[in-house]
Amino acid sequence: MQRSLRRSAVRTWAQIYTQVVNEQNIEDKYFKLLRTADDMESSGLIDGREWRKLVRKAGEFLASTAE
């Protein structure tokens, strides 16, 4: 059960990451990625190492949109 929930949560995070957004929604997407990673860690679906990886990837997304 936990493994299925974990896969689903990671898949949801990845879907959020790959969604196309307009310039006004970039920060919203970034914060949604962070909240989702936080929720996954606090519920025990991912560990601290995996959480850091997702947060880093969210940060890379934000940085890649900077002008």
Rank of each mutant, 00 (worst) to 15 (best):
I26N: 01
A14R: 15
R56T: 15
S4I: 15
T18K: 13
S42N: 14
L34K: 15
S42T: 10
T65S: 04
R35F: 11
T65I: 00
A37G: 10
M40R: 02
E41L: 15
A63I: 07
L62N: 00
F31Y: 15
A37L: 09
A14S: 14
V10F: 04
Y30K: 04
E50T: 06
R7W: 05
R7S: 11
G44D: 08
A37Q: 03
L5M: 11
T18E: 15
K29E: 04
T12W: 00
A37Y: 02
W13L: 07
L62S: 01
T36F: 02
S8C: 09
A37F: 03
K32S: 13
R7P: 00
I46Y: 09
D39M: 09
Q15W: 10
T18A: 15
V55E: 06
Q2S: 12
R52N: 11
E60D: 10
I16N: 04
F31V: 13
A37R: 02
K53S: 13
L33K: 05
V10E: 09
D39T: 13
E60V: 00
S4T: 13
L45I: 02
N22P: 04
R7E: 13
R52V: 04
R11Y: 05
R52W: 01
R6E: 13
L62P: 01
R56G: 07
E27S: 12
S4M: 11
I46D: 05
N22C: 09
N25W: 14
K32V: 12
G59P: 01
S8P: 00
G59I: 01
S8Y: 02
R3L: 12
T36E: 04
T12S: 07
S8D: 12
G44Y: 07
F61W: 06
N22Y: 08
I26C: 05
L33N: 05
T12R: 06
K53R: 14
R35K: 13
R52Y: 03
L54V: 01
S43K: 14
Q24Y: 08
E23L: 08
K29R: 12
R7I: 09
R3T: 13
T65L: 00
R49G: 11
D47I: 13
A63D: 11
W51Q: 10
S43M: 08
T12Q: 07
T65N: 07
D47V: 11
Y30V: 05
Q2M: 13
R3F: 12
N22S: 12
A63P: 01
